[in-house]
Design a protein around this nucleic acid. Structure first.
Lengths: 185, 185
DNA sequence: ACCTGAACACCGTTCAAGT
DNA sequence: ACCTGAACACCGTTCAAGT
């Protein structure tokens, strides 16, 4: 990449992160381009869709979650590892509203810029799930796709402003479904 | 309402239902107006927002769900009643994509056209939940808002095309969280 | 190679003009 | 009263023209 292109690319990402995690979660691509000081076409060439931009913003987060799963796998018992990782996975997208629906759509669309990140996430979760199932902790009639869906549902709930105050409780309820016999009844 | 206005109102609703439940879940309000043979302003006066249109389309459904809850309350045991009603509530919005996020937002916004329907739905669910809790079937640390949120999450999952094939299973998993000790482990 | 920004086809919303 | 449809301020996307 030419150095001026690289500079634009980085500037777009920085501005997008500021706007989206700041007060403007629905900022238009045009707004982002303007604030980044580039033309509409430049943004569109670097990031052909909004998804592509989100993917670039979240790739590091997904990679970190995958590494985190590996560490938990080694260091912690199966139930605690899965639970901790779930909590972190659900929390990981909370600053990027709208990304959850895009992720669910991307898991089935190999063309999507988010596809790779989604597959990585699902695999990481699946490893932890299988171990917890082997230990008889997690319910047996579930697979990695179910787990991915439940994480999505929880992340989506946490994205809805009126439900934010309840999101910890809702996490506990659904976590109980995955790891029965944990919390209070 | 003047008779020509009533005719327009009905025509808009009929066309909207056709388009939204047909192949065009994201049909624009302008498309709906054109197909209904009315001006943009006419649609906008009858239904100031997309939510208002969805509310009109779904009001009967919500009323029916509320009546259904009352009947189940009388005729069926607490666990079965809640479970059956949950399944119907989750399925009730499946033909109207995008309505779930609007409903969650409306539960906290008294100005929303959907607010009344949401409150009705929450009350109906809460009655069934309380009875199931009294019978010791439903988990005790939940309230009507939690139930509303879980219904929303399930309906949202059912709205995501890649997850449609799994939605029955996901329903079972979350239903187990609400009514522990039901399904297979 | 890469960038700019006008242009295009949309969108929801408003409002002057009509009946 | 109620309706129409042009107009407005947006949106994502494209592409001719520049450097």
């Amino acid at each position: 990449m030419r150095s001026d292109a690289k500079k634009n690319y980085d500037m777009i990402l920085a501005v997008a992160r500021d706007l989206l995690t700041g007060g403007s979660p629905d900022a238009s691509l045009r707004d982002i381009a303007r604030k980044a000081g580039v033309g509409d076409g430049t943004l569109h060439r670097h990031f052909p869709t909004r998804e592509a931009l989100l993917e670039a913003l979240l790739r590091d987060t997904f990679d970190a979650l995958s590494a985190r799963a590996r560490r938990l796998q080694e260091e912690t018992n199966a139930e605690e590892a899965l639970l901790t990782w779930l909590r972190e996975a659900v929390g990981s997208t909370k600053d990027y509203s709208g990304v959850i629906a895009a992720m669910v759509s991307a898991i089935a669309d190999e063309q999507s810029a988010l596809h790779g990140s989604c597959v990585t996430l699902r695999s990481a979760g699946n490893r932890l799930l299988v171990r917890a199932q082997t230990d008889g902790r997690a319910r047996a009639d579930m697979d990695g796709d179910d787990l991915f869906a439940l994480i999505s549902a929880l992340a989506w709930l946490a994205e809805q402003p009126p439900l934010v105050p309840r999101s910890d409780r809702l996490f506990d309820i659904i976590a109980d479904a995955i790891l029965p016999g944990r919390g209070p009844r």
